[in-house]
Simulated assay, not measured.
Amino acid sequence: EDVLQETWLRWVNVDLAEVRDQRAYLVRITTRQSLNRLRAMQRRKEAYIGPWLPEPLLTSPDVAEDVELAENVSMALMVVLEALSPTERAVFVLREAFDVGYDEIAATLGKTPEAVRQIAHRARAHVEERRPRKAVSPTSETRATVDFIVRALHEGEPHRLLEVLAPEVVLITDGGGIKQATLRPITGAERVTRMAAGRLAKLSSAVTVEATVVNGSPGILLRLNGEIDGVLALRVDDAR
């Protein structure tokens, strides 16, 4: 959203009569603003202690119905993209998501088309190597599992999570330096359940729990006194 705002501010101050190719101009502005933001986030990431997760994206329910779109905005893919350098990520998104030509990407980044092709190849190989292969549960099954978790938390019975958490479940948290988060992943259904119970006990009755859609997949939204306190993105396999 910040990138979009910055792009818009530059766009409205441009004399369009002097712009030869408006689409290319917008691509260039947006890409450069995105690179600036990615590099700033990379510096924060290097100084941050604990797991680093992508910013969650609250999406509309219809995104989850589009399997290809849901995969392209999934938290799993966002984690993979976080491992790319800013330039690799820009090239990958422009080429793979928007089918921008190598010459245009090269002009946008101030590189040669040959260099851009090499970067694209490297980024594509990196993503394909790490992209999750296992198919997740059907949407209806996933929603039923999420609804069960929401009811258990809403009714103050976190121990019931043991019924739906996989024995080897892994919980990774990122507070962004603002909220309290664990510095290491928590593994195992019992340990995750204990943490959920402790968290709910601290928040008391001021917390509400609701189902939502996070990065194209069902997730959970926690509100504290009406304000968003946390977002939980879930992966469901075999109804767990």
Rank of each mutant, 00 (worst) to 15 (best):
P167V: 04
Q42M: 12
A144W: 09
K179L: 14
R124H: 11
T7P: 07
Q5C: 10
R151F: 05
A211E: 14
R89Y: 01
R199A: 15
E65K: 14
V93T: 06
L58W: 04
E168I: 00
M195P: 00
Q5V: 14
R39S: 12
A144Y: 04
V164S: 01
E157N: 11
T108D: 03
T139C: 00
L77F: 05
V73F: 07
A107C: 03
G50Y: 06
E157V: 07
T87P: 00
V100E: 04
A189H: 10
L200W: 06
R151P: 00
A97L: 09
A166E: 13
A181Q: 07
R130T: 02
A152R: 04
L162M: 14
E65R: 14
E155V: 07
P132T: 04
R131T: 05
W8A: 14
A90C: 08
V146H: 05
E227L: 15
V93A: 08
N13P: 00
E88V: 09
R43F: 08
A152C: 11
V146G: 04
L183G: 10
E68S: 05
V231D: 08
G101Q: 11
I119G: 01
S140E: 14
A83C: 09
L165N: 08
Y48T: 10
W52E: 04
A107T: 10
L171F: 12
E155R: 13
I149S: 07
E65D: 10
N225H: 15
E46M: 13
Q118T: 13
V12T: 14
R160S: 05
R32P: 03
R191W: 07
H159P: 00
E82V: 08
M75Y: 11
A90P: 01
T139E: 13
V19S: 03
T187Q: 14
A211Q: 14
A115Q: 12
R199K: 14
L9C: 04
S137Y: 06
V116C: 05
R89K: 15
T139H: 12
E129L: 15
T193A: 08
P54D: 02
V19D: 04
K179P: 00
S74V: 02
L109Y: 09
G50V: 04
Y102F: 14
I119A: 02
S217V: 09
G175W: 01
A197S: 15
T208E: 13
V146N: 04
M75R: 08
Q33M: 09
A76V: 00
Y102M: 11
A189C: 03
D2G: 10
E71W: 08
R160C: 01
N215F: 00
L77P: 02
S34C: 09
R191Y: 10
G188C: 10
E129H: 11
D2R: 15
I49L: 12
V214M: 02
D21F: 08
S204M: 09
E55T: 11
A123M: 06
